[in-house]
């Protein structure tokens, strides 16, 4: 099975470039993001300020669509429980 259409769309090329723009020397990986995303979600929902550590979650979410999908689902659960 092929992995998809051969040619990249303009959006996909833009995604590569945007990811490079967000790249920093030190970043959270997915495991580190998972460890802190609960605190990040709770702070976002209650409009509390974010610490440097939590800002790293935000940067990872901008780069990683999978973690972003899981974060959005977590927000849905928290919002339903409010």
């Amino acid at each position: 099975m092929k992995t998809g259409d051969q040619r990249l769309t303009g959006d996909q090329v833009g995604t590569i470039v945007k990811m490079l723009g967000l790249t920093t020397d030190r970043e959270f990986n997915c495991g580190e993001c998972l460890q802190h995303v609960g605190e990040y979600a709770e702070r976002q929902l209650s409009n509390k300020p974010v610490s440097d550590v939590i800002a790293s979650v935000e940067q990872h979410l901008a780069l990683c669509p999978e973690c972003r999908e899981e974060y959005e689902a977590l927000r849905k659960i928290l919002e339903a429980g409010q």
Binding site: L34, G38, E39, A41, E42, E66, A73, L74
Partner: peptide
């Protein structure tokens, strides 16, 4: 650093989405 259930739900979502994504791409 968060409520316990928030931390646990984040793990549950990771488990569920990982499995759902795996099914979609298992033949690559």
């Amino acid at each position: 650093r968060s409520r316990f259930t928030t931390w646990a739900q984040a793990i549950a979502l990771n488990v569920a989405f990982t499995e759902l994504r795996r099914k979609r791409w298992q033949d690559v």
